[in-house]
Nucleic acid binder design. Sequence first.
DNA 1: AAGGCGGGGGC
DNA 2: GCCCCAGCCTT
Length: 352
Amino acid sequence: MRSGEKTAHAVSTRFDGLPAALLDWYARHARDLPWRIGPGERARGVTPDPYRVWLAEIMLQQTTVPHAARYFHAFTETWPTVEDLAGADDGDVMAAWAGLGYYARARNLLKCARAVAEAGAWPKTEDALRSLPGIGAYTAGAVAALAFGERAPAVDGNVDRVFARLLAAKGPWKEEKARIAALVRALVPADRPGEFAEALMDLGATICTPKRPNCLLCPVRDWCAAHGEGEVERYPVKPEKKARPQRRGEVYAVFRGGDVLVERRPDRGLLGGMLALPTTEWLESGMAERPGWADGGDAIGEVRHVFTHFELRLTVKRLTLADAPSGFEWMSADEAGEAFPSVFRKALKLAR
DNA sequence: AAGGCGGGGGC
DNA sequence: GCCCCAGCCTT
């Protein structure tokens, strides 16, 4: 027997009964989330609004449920349909996303909404969804399964962890993830792909947690190789992370009455497209050049902020100017504070 | 294939 | 402090 056949056959019987056991558990323990319809409604043929499913999935990328939920309510209140969002002002959307992070998501959110509004309808297959801005492998599968009932897998960090444990996956993490993706695709039940996706995510979020998993309550424990080994928390085995370097710079809180000086950051790169305070470059060593108009300000303190790949210490200087330097403009400090990403919110709060 | 890209909460 | 989280895009 060729190894491919052997693997495929082993997979097909190894997890017999797991989807049914998982769905049975989900019928009793599904989380009630704002973008979901319950198992009961789904059984009566109700399907969720693709716009709400998509919006939630984008917000949930690398983001916790409680954090995303607050933004989900605000967005659906302000822009109830994808056509509403497509017609929104860019700055309004970026301001509404402020504080949620990974701002390329918001830029792609608008691109995607406008593409869908222009087309007049959502693409309804995994492959077609995958080609839209901001929709990758996970989100395409999730929207296809949840909103359109396609037999597609939704493999996120939760599902990777669950299957790393079921398989006691000891190999290189990249290879294990590819193996898991293929396995989950093969296991999706044709009649209930959306509930299967939600069930796996709920299992990962509430039972098969990163720390102290609750194996006693796990509906798929009988299939779990890691539980058999008695070392569930050992999995998944991920590559080591690199240390975060330190960067430093200055940021300027420049006031004119109740207004503060702001700029719009370029669309690419860190905090791209976001409203910002004037700042020097942020360097690991050496002193960044200070703009001439910023000489003479009072250093009033320091803010620290952690980004994905570096830690930042910013000296905050406060000053007043009569005229806005080229490239900057005045905005009410209250309004600016709402539209800033977190690092500039911290600096403004310190300076006020 | 690897690295850039936010932010908050749990422990 | 360190960990992780409903990942995607660019190079």
